[in-house]
Nucleic acid binder design. Sequence first.
DNA 1: TAAAGAATGCAATGCAGTTGCATGCAAACA
DNA 2: TGTTTGCATGCAACTGCATTGCATTCTTTA
Lengths: 118, 118
Amino acid sequence: MRLLVLDFLLKQQAAVSLNDLEAAFHRADRITLYRTLKTFEEKGLVHSIADGTGSVKYALCEEGCACAPEDLHVHFHCNICNETYCLPKSRIPEIALPENFKTEEISLIMKGTCASCS
Amino acid sequence: MRLLVLDFLLKQQAAVSLNDLEAAFHRADRITLYRTLKTFEEKGLVHSIADGTGSVKYALCEEGCACAPEDLHVHFHCNICNETYCLPKSRIPEIALPENFKTEEISLIMKGTCASCS
DNA sequence: TAAAGAATGCAATGCAGTTGCATGCAAACA
DNA sequence: TGTTTGCATGCAACTGCATTGCATTCTTTA
């Protein structure tokens, strides 16, 4: 089952939600898919993206992607096709913070129209 | 009631969730507070922040804050005190996007430790 | 004062995420 | 080879937050 999910993820251009997975594997149980994603996330295979749509998306980590602050990329949510894409080439620039603020995580979500829909 | 909520918001340093409001106004109905926030948001008085904690936070808009892409500030969520702050002085820098991607909204959430908790 | 419109409160719904428990499979071990 | 142990799967149920419908109350205005 996990192999099937991994295979499915490899074929995706966009990040997938639990619902997407469920639709693709209608024979499998929602819970199993959920736990599969959680396991993948723990092992560092995928990272989760809260794109503000209410449902968390998951995408495969790139080679050497530690999903750590120093290796963060931008996520783009298209309002037309409702897909969320990783933009590994768009790095998050350094942000000036007030004194004594320590960053552990950064999440940058852009919303608009993607290349396919414009 | 709306005046009370507005007054409460004015006193806050951090963004408030619906639960925060409910705790502060335990005499008022959750739904009323919810609709009050929605109304404020529609009118441009507050902006909503999805900080990834599962509950949406609201904060008063600054003077002249159009909450538009060109006027976006950073939000900071402290993992210790669980508060979410607006950092109006930390502007979101220009991000290089792939060809034909059009941005309409940007949301940048940083997580870590705030000044009070460090 | 009467009527119209808006605000409030109660109840109920929907959805996403999550957990507990029982079952089944498969590898490790005696 | 038979047993045991651990993990994966599936079902059911629960939680929390957001949201809507409907009835009631308040306010405004003619």
